[in-house]
Design a protein around this nucleic acid. Structure first.
Lengths: 121, 121
DNA sequence: CTAAAGGCTGACGTTGACGTGAGGGTCAAG
DNA sequence: CTTGACCCTCACGTCAACGTCAGCCTTTAG
């Protein structure tokens, strides 16, 4: 499929898709016309990229992670302790942020769920 | 206390503290010299700001939330339905972010080989 | 009193993930 | 065979959360 369709099917802008390629997250074929030609797996890949980006990972980190996801091989990861450590660190950061967000949401809940309290104290 | 001490006690840079003020997150008094004069509560406030920022909230969102939290108690929220709506919207955004982060963490978990923990809300 | 340390206000620089044209090919339809 | 939708490659613009530097004033230590 061409870039416009992938864009519609993933919600990522055309510009974003070209940017992902520039960052090594996608490697579409090229048609004789020079047009990018994506396969079905690209749809899943783009969704993963977006999830990880929205989680605060950089394209560089994602580029490290992605090949392992695509191949569905945890084997490589298990063999590379350096990469494993990096991933564990990212995981820890994400967990911290989930906890921070949960705390923030609890604060909002206490504000919303307690109507007509005019003053603290 | 002056800005340098607050910086040391919070880990935020002097520049960051001035930036937070610019964004309406802090409102220190001023000494006759023009120096900023922070009270003890500022320490807690800055910590809250940093947690929320690291969780991915913008200073604008934080500015909406912060004034409503004073000494961990509710102030005037119940009387303003407009504000309540804003907070509810903010809550929804936070929940979305938590879900995105959880999905991202699951991806990392599958790579690391850690068993997926069923999120208990 | 003097120098170092710390504070102040601009104001420009930085980084990451794109947005937004400019200028120009490609392709299916009428 | 022209029109309009879609694609291409530069390449500059943007926005957030600060970093950094300049030029100048205030406070503190000796």
């Amino acid at each position: 499929m061409k870039i416009g369709e992938l864009s519609r099917r993933t919600g990522a802008s055309v510009r974003a898709l070209r940017y992902y390629e520039e960052q090594g997250l996608l490697a579409p074929e090229r048609l004789p016309s020079g047009y990018r030609d994506y396969d079905e797996r690209s749809v899943v890949t783009v969704h993963r990229v977006r999830v990880l980006l929205s989680a605060g990972l950089s394209t560089a980190s994602i580029a490290e992670i992605l090949p392992n996801v695509v191949d569905d091989s945890v084997v490589l990861t298990g063999r590379c302790p350096e990469l494993r450590e990096g991933l564990a660190a990212e995981r820890a950061r994400i967990t911290e942020r989930i906890e921070a967000l949960t705390a923030a949401r609890d604060i909002l809940d206490s504000l919303i769920g307690r109507p007509l309290v005019v003053s603290g104290r």
